[in-house]
Amino acid sequence: MSKALANRRLLTRLSVFAVAMFGFGFALVPFYEKICEVAGINNLIKPAAAVENTQIDRSRTITLEFDANAHGLEWEFKPVQTSVRVHPGEMIQVEYDVRNKGAKPVVGQAIPSYGPKHAAPFVKKLECFCFKQQPLLAGEGKRMPVQFVIDSTLPADVNTITLSYTFFEVKGAALPKGGDQG
């Protein structure tokens, strides 16, 4: 085999390898999602698996504070009650009000975050408006429930948990019908 041919073969092989690595970068996306799923991390907007410790622990009272934000959306979004006091193990339901004050129908997705951060796994959400995308027509409003249990294994140093939701716009999502599409 001449050297020129050998060189060209190596060129082809290495180019194929480079293209494959470009694909590998994209393959990391489902791989990452799978790992998160298996490891049970990053399931903020999924219902909790079966709640185990349902014994109500009346010796502890936890203060839950609620917060709401809309990022880059002309939405009015606020909790109906700003805080509640609960016992671990108790089933609680709270509500949030949201209204689209903009002139266009938009789809939003709420992302929860917790303070302190390490309390997150102990807030077991059974029902939440954040489990699905929320389409709102121009001017449309909604009252939305969140249902959850505070796991009674919550570390003893946590007495107050802040639950904060932020609505983000989901660009390119299917819009609700009947709205002004302009």
Binding site: L14, F17, A18, V19, M21, F22, F24, G25, F26, L28
Partner: peptide, 11 residues
């Protein structure tokens, strides 16, 4: 370089 520059390009 051949292994990781494409990954950066992907990102």
């Amino acid at each position: 370089l051949v292994a990781v520059m494409p990954v950066l390009a992907g990102a």
